[in-house]
């Protein structure tokens, strides 16, 4: 409980800092480069508080990782892709096929699965914020790692193809798809936000703390944010929609030789 309280105090201060920063940012006559601005904010947080907001989520995730579930087990008993208890570099190889669940899973759905099958939680007992924190903790072991997502298993290849199909699906009242912005117009901006393609490394920055929102976003959160902004209702968490799209994007980023950013990342 104490860490929670501390976290909220620090987060409150950080939010205040973000607000001041944001005001200064929007008062500018010329638009600033959003990534440069994020780096400036990051530096300010480090100098003022000595810690980044993302690290607080990872700390919370660590506690939850070592918490015993109803079965008496912690998440140390879960195989995240490189065997039980191995966290180093696992985020860089996900999504992948897991024999025990007979499913291709990204890190978030894998955490969700293991909290049920290993730890004995019921789905209704699993809070989204807990999964986000645990995901952030595990992803921090792949900070700056080379992306190594390469579909091989037939289930992974099928999931990659489904992800590509979703990527090109134009739907909703704005006639949008992922591809029409993120391939055809990669390098351009939507309002002030630069848009990247998977070949330019799209997806290599999550989980990240977004200072404009004062929230932590995982890859699934970010996919949902995209769908909402193109007038398509966001898909439910841990669905194959997220897993297929993530597999497609990260496989393309891997082919182009990209690495993850510092994880958890700090961004606008």
């Amino acid at each position: 409980m104490r860490t929670h309280k501390n976290r909220f105090t620090v987060l409150g201060l950080l939010a205040l800092g973000a607000l001041v920063g944001l005001m200064a940012y929007t008062q500018q006559a010329k638009p600033l480069d959003p990534f440069e601005e994020a780096m400036r904010q990051r530096q300010m947080y480090l100098e003022t508080f000595g810690i980044l907001p993302g690290e607080l989520f990872a700390e919370e995730g660590k506690e939850l990782f070592f918490r015993k579930g109803p079965s008496g087990k912690t998440l140390e008993e879960c195989d995240f892709g490189k065997g039980k208890g191995v966290l180093e570099g696992v985020y860089a190889i996900l999504p992948k096929y897991f024999l025990d669940s007979r499913r291709v899973e990204d890190l978030e759905s894998r955490v969700y699965t293991c909290m049920q099958t290993v730890q004995g939680f019921k789905p209704a007992e699993i809070e989204r914020d807990e999964v986000k924190a645990i995901t952030t903790y595990i992803a921090s072991f792949s900070s700056k790692a080379k992306i190594q997502v390469a579909p091989k298993h037939p289930a992974e290849l099928a999931m990659y193809n489904l992800g590509r199909e979703l990527w090109y699906t134009r739907a909703g009242a704005r006639d949008m798809s992922c591809a029409v912005c993120h391939d055809q117009y990669a390098g351009q901006r939507v309002r002030l936000s630069p848009v990247r393609s998977p070949k330019q490394g799209l997806g290599n920055e999550w989980p990240a703390y977004r200072f404009e929102e004062d929230k932590l976003y995982t890859m699934e959160d970010r996919i949902n944010f995209c769908y909402e902004s193109i007038a398509i209702p966001k898909p439910e968490f841990y669905s194959d929609v997220h897993i297929a799209l993530t597999l497609y994007m990260l496989a393309e980023a891997a082919k182009a030789g990209h690495s993850f950013e510092e994880l958890p990342f700090f961004t606008r």
Binding site: A158, L166, P233, P235, E236, D240, V241, A244
Partner: peptide
């Protein structure tokens, strides 16, 4: 058929629009 199953996994509202 597989694609439609994936869309339904995303929930009713998502599937309906897609």
């Amino acid at each position: 058929a597989r694609l439609e199953a994936v869309l339904h996994q995303g929930g009713h509202e998502f599937a309906q629009v897609m």
